[in-house]
Amino acid sequence: MVLNVVSEVDEVLNIFQVKEKKHESFITRAVASLYYQLRILFEYRMAIAIDIIDITISVLIYYFVSFLISKQALSSLGYSPDYLAFAVLGISLSRYLWSSISRLAHKLSHEISEGTLESLVVADVDNLKSWLVGQIMYGFSWSSFWFVGAIIIGMILGAGISTNLLAWFQAIFVLLLTIVVHSGIGVIAAGMYIKHKELETMLFFLSVAMEFLGGVLYPISLLYNIAPLYYISLSLPFTHGLELFRRTLMDELPLLHPKMIFHMVFLIAFLPLVYLGFKVFNKYLEIAKKEGILAAY
């Protein structure tokens, strides 16, 4: 009897002491992170319904505002005279801004306040990289839902958005490039958030400011009226991403067109942010582990 108990205890101890060798691939872990987040989303069906109404009403508002806009004024600023297309493309791309920059820090804040971040880190095998990528993919899926919805409703209402397949391939390339660059900023922010909790407020502010300065609802050249803001706007990657995106889907300009090259070069110059983002995140994660502040909020 005593011998039996001893051998059972040894077996249990062995199980605890065995290091888990079998790890799923990076992609599988990232998809798992995306999948669990989508499962949570589909639990809140009301939130999805609210999002659909939000998309429809937002586009309808700019449909009616477009009747107020002077076509000559819009043309004189170098755009096609279709304000509905201008606004729809702006608001649809701006959704990616929030999901790329602020969502990761917001998600971390949620995990910390719910007390689940420490558990995530304990089960982690790659410094949360696959988890982060899964969360970025989730933000991308959610924003894409908004993006597709806004564009479809806009086109039904007569927005002059290109239906040329080549223009769309180029637009998707520009979109992905814009998201990747901004995700780099988001990963840096999320890393810093682990240690500096007050950053979340700043990130909200940053997203809203970028949306305003990027010219989501008005042509960026109007910012000349407040000159310092115009130059700040030019230093933001979002401004250039949106400009490329609009010129592609409204005017079907190729990437090598003189009006596009400057914006393209500027956007590509921000790409190293992605590498830097993961470096910063790792650094802050290590600091937080050493200081034992992962569960603090």
Binding site: V65, L68, I69, E200, T201, F205, L217, Y218
Partner: peptide
């Protein structure tokens, strides 16, 4: 955070419509 967000949102919304007004037809 929500108060900052609310104020920032409103502030930028006012600025957005200030700029948009430059291309609106006054007769409408």
């Amino acid at each position: 955070i929500w108060i900052v967000f609310d104020f920032a949102n409103t502030f930028f919304m006012v600025l957005t419509y200030f700029l948009l007004a430059f291309i609106v037809k006054p007769e409408s």
